[in-house]
Write a protein that binds this DNA or RNA. Structure first.
Length: 105
DNA sequence: ACATGTTCCTTAC
DNA sequence: GTAAGGAACATGT
């Protein structure tokens, strides 16, 4: 567990239910500025239920990836979880961009 | 829309 | 210590 991961997970847990964030915003929040580093931290997710990585999507409002795959049953589960929290996806994209959560906003 | 470059962190040799 | 990889973003063609 590195400090970077702690920061990423901390910020991730700060995301309220029914909202989602993007790799870019999350990266900016943790102070790295690089979404790829965040993706690495998320894919290493030591505690999946403690770290709602499914609440993190791409800046393109697409799902991006999940469990190391950009498509598959994992992605479907991700959408399902988000939908369960009130975040609907349409056409593989976030139906409501206003549900994007910005840190400090 | 597709291809290329950039940026930061983690892991492997 | 050096090299390669990754759930991305931005820019150019």
């Amino acid at each position: 567990m590195t400090k970077f991961q702690q920061k990423v997970y901390g910020a991730l847990k700060r995301i309220p239910r029914g909202r989602v964030t993007t790799y870019g915003l999350l990266a900016k929040e943790v102070g790295c500025g690089s979404a790829r580093a965040v993706g690495q931290a998320l894919k290493h997710n030591p505690d999946a239920p403690t770290v709602p990585c499914h609440r993190v999507i791409r800046s393109d409002l697409t799902l991006g990836g999940y469990s190391g795959s950009e498509s598959g049953a994992d992605i479907r589960r991700k959408v399902r979880l988000l939908k369960q929290e009130g975040v609907a996806f349409e056409g593989g994209r976030l139906a409501n961009p206003k549900q994007l959560f910005r840190f400090g906003a």
